[in-house]
């Protein structure tokens, strides 16, 4: 999929420049298509995915308001144009899945997305229904990743997800938690079950997972999705009021969102971070972190020390 998308974008950009060489938006697309995107491997298959994805918690829950749906479509378009593919949602997020389906359909981007959603119910039968509903809401027949949301009734849902994987309706299965909760239970599941992905919270202000979950995921060859990379927005709002470190360009970063995201995705165990936003300019800032280079451990520690000292 990646190669197909890349070649497609490259061809479009080339044709666009040929016929309209002074159009800036086409030039930007061309630049985006040519510049390398940072990717990491999903350990279970070695498939490469971009290190920055897109969360939809709160941001895509806009109901049936057309103006907001269209604006979120623009946000998704900016994400895809910048090279993003991984999109994460959940039945818990109100109308987010439906709005995503609207945006994906409007952009005809079904083939471009790495679709990840969740099962969020304590009832096993309802879990199966929820999967069908997600297919209908997203407008997709298959998902790349299906996760048990917040460990809810994983005992019933994991076997169902394994079944889906065998049938080819999903390619990966996983389990999520957030807000730094239920880490002990998640660690036990990571040790006992054959998981492709786990998802939890990790950011410059919340590094609990560094002690146990990150090393364990690495050891067990499980891909990691990091949610709440900006601490639900609170961390980034605080950082944006602070001066950037003078040496930020040495890290190939232009702003705080890039620094905060690069800190996360440069951890060797982390596969992808999924910041959520409803604003185009924030999406562009976030996607800055999908380019350039990853930080080495010394740079990560230097950045962390700078943030802690603020």
């Amino acid at each position: 999929m990646q190669r197909r998308t890349f070649i497609g974008k490259l061809s479009c950009a080339g044709i666009a420049i040929l016929f309209n060489p002074f159009n800036l938006s086409y030039s930007l697309q061309a630049k985006e298509a040519i510049a390398p995107i940072l990717k990491k491997k999903i350990p279970s298959t070695r498939e490469m995915i971009p290190v920055i994805g897109m969360g939809t918690w709160i941001t895509f829950n806009v109901g049936k308001i057309k103006s907001l749906r269209d604006q979120r479509t623009e946000v998704l378009k900016a994400f895809l144009n910048a090279g993003g593919t991984v999109i994460d949602s959940s039945p818990m997020y109100g109308s987010s899945e439906e709005v995503l389906g609207y945006a994906i359909n409007k952009l005809a981007a079904q083939e471009e997305v790495f679709a990840a959603t969740k099962t969020w119910t304590s009832d096993a039968a309802e879990g199966k229904e929820q999967f069908k509903e997600s297919q209908s809401l997203w407008g997709l027949s298959d998902f790349e990743l299906q996760q048990v949301h917040n460990l809810v009734n994983w005992q019933d849902h994991l076997p169902f997800l394994q079944e889906l994987k065998k049938e080819g309706k999903i390619r990966y299965l996983g389990i999520t938690t957030s807000h730094g909760r239920r880490h002990a239970a998640l660690a036990r599941l990571m040790e006992q079950y054959d998981l492709d992905f786990v998802q939890f919270t990790y950011n410059l202000a919340n590094r609990d997972v560094e002690n146990r979950l990150l090393p364990l995921a690495r050891e067990k060859q499980i891909a990691i999705i990091v949610n709440r990379p900006f601490g639900g927005g609170r961390l980034i709002r605080h950082l944006k009021k602070q001066p950037l470190p003078e040496w930020h360009q040495e890290l190939a970063c232009n702003n705080w969102p890039e620094l905060a995201l690069k800190y996360i995705v440069s951890h060797p165990a982390v596969t992808v971070a999924i910041p959520a936003t409803s604003k185009l300019e924030h999406m562009r800032e976030n996607m800055g972190a999908v380019r350039g280079r990853l930080l080495v451990e010394e740079e990560r520690q230097r950045l962390l020390k700078y943030v802690v000292d603020l």
Binding site: I58, T59, N61, V62, I65, L68, M92, Y93, G94, S278
Partner: peptide, 12 residues
């Protein structure tokens, strides 16, 4: 966290 919507969406 539970409200799942923003003031912008509530107003709109």
């Amino acid at each position: 966290d539970l409200l799942m919507l923003s003031p912008e969406v509530y107003e709109a």
